[in-house]
Design a protein around this nucleic acid. Structure first.
Lengths: 168, 168
DNA sequence: TTAAACTTTCAAAAGCTATTGAAAGCTTTT
DNA sequence: AAAAGCTTTCAATAGCTTTTGAAAGTTTAA
């Protein structure tokens, strides 16, 4: 298999996986591109490699910056901005987990907490079941949330640190 | 907070979370509806509660069946099909993990394995970096995949069983 | 201070995914 | 065997998300 084909297939595959997990396909592809590049790239490079517009490239680069998955690099004697990606897979996983937790899990927990306060009424069976399910869901999601915290602080804790090493 | 409002907000919230995680919003809402219902529901019930068309309801119900998250229930003396959802959160999580692993992780691992076979060429730095990243990614995704397997078989293994109990 | 180089914005357009609803297809009842 | 009751299909369409590209904005160089 030739490099150019392999590269192309990787960009496709990573983009598809991203969109299956609720991440913009192009954002995943820009990230993939920076991931396999041995040197920092400019907006121009990314536009050319992925055949996308300047606006699109710019937008997805800022989004990746906000996820802290890439960073700007200054190349001495050049006015252009260069970008480079975090390459350690464990770091990437941690950053994604952290961001999704903050953006998605935490707001849901807030809502579930409020919903547990539903008042008991006449509609016995329905309301009882609702409260039961919400409570269970809340416990579950809260535990997921805590597990992510634990993972993020894994290195600080000898016990989890050793479990992580088994999985890692 | 009134029950009807709480129910509505729950359906909204769960639908939004679903779509953030790459699951059709309506599918998540149908699931949510069955999750909080103390008794099995018909297609008609679901159409009314979510204000969706028959075709849409039918399609998402079959999708949920294929994920093994809901099942058909026969009510004696009634020709209609009723549906009911698995209610144990741990079971739900396991089924979702199992399905996504099969549909998304496994195909990616196959591709990564193929991409590792890229031939070394003149373009030294680029190809070398590519191979390195693909290998690391492959190791990482394979470990994720194995971790999911371990989780799915958690109850069979005393050691992981005890860890799961801590998280669960 | 003017011009050039580069980045950001955003309204319009394209592209994609989800939804509708009527028709076709089953299965059970009469 | 005809009708009624219910489920499934799918082409058309609606609605949402992404992308474009030109214009505006910003920074550096001359």
């Amino acid at each position: 298999m030739k490099f150019v084909e392999a590269k192309q297939e990787f960009l496709q595959t990573w983009g598809r996986l991203g969109s299956e997990w609720g991440i913009n396909r192009t954002m995943a592809q820009v990230h993939a591109l920076l991931l396999i590049s041995p040197k920092p790239l400019t907006t121009e490079d990314i536009m050319v490699d992925l055949s996308i517009s300047r606006g699109n490239a710019n937008m997805n680069l800022r989004e990746l910056l906000s996820w802290d998955l890439i960073e700007k690099v200054l190349v001495p004697g050049d006015r252009k901005e260069y970008f480079t990606a975090e390459k350690d897979m464990w770091e990437i996983a941690k950053k994604v987990a952290k961001e999704r937790k903050r953006r998605e899990l935490e707001p849901v927990i807030k809502v579930l907490n409020r919903l547990e306060q539903v008042e008991d009424s006449e509609k016995e069976a329905e309301v009882k079941e609702f409260k039961k399910r919400i409570t269970e869901l809340n416990e579950f999601v809260t535990k997921m949330d805590k597990s992510v915290d634990t993972m993020l602080r894994a290195e600080e804790n000898w016990f989890f640190s050793s479990i992580i090493k088994m999985i890692r």
